[in-house]
């Protein structure tokens, strides 16, 4: 089974800008494994800080398999994950 690691920054600014909702969206992919024909497991790692120390205007920050996503949201992160898995 394919494995994918997604790191989500959970600094205050990223949490305020929806980091927890992004994590929820990533977890929700597990419920769509049949519809998406997924044979993979996604490992979510919350990080105190990703990227630069003060990344306010770029938050939330997410890294999908070493690829940094700035101003991430559920839509862009789910799409990136599926791109990596398919």
């Amino acid at each position: 089974m394919q494995k994918l690691t997604v790191q989500v920054c959970v600094c205050p600014e990223c949490v305020m800008n929806g980091a927890m909702d992004i994590m929820e969206a990533i977890e929700s992919l597990n419920k769509l494994k049949v519809q998406l024909s997924l044979h993979a497991s996604v490992n979510i790692i919350p990080r105190a800080h990703l990227g630069e120390e003060d990344h306010g205007s770029k938050s939330p920050l997410v890294i999908v398999n070493n690829e940094l996503i700035e101003n991430a949201n559920a839509e862009t992160v789910m799409s990136k994950i599926l791109t990596h898995l398919q």
Partner: peptide, 15 residues
């Protein structure tokens, strides 16, 4: 409260 943390740049739960 989260707005206050962000404005002050305070990380809660740092190592």
């Amino acid at each position: 409260l989260m707005g206050m943390f962000v404005a002050k740049g305070i990380m809660v739960g740092g190592e």
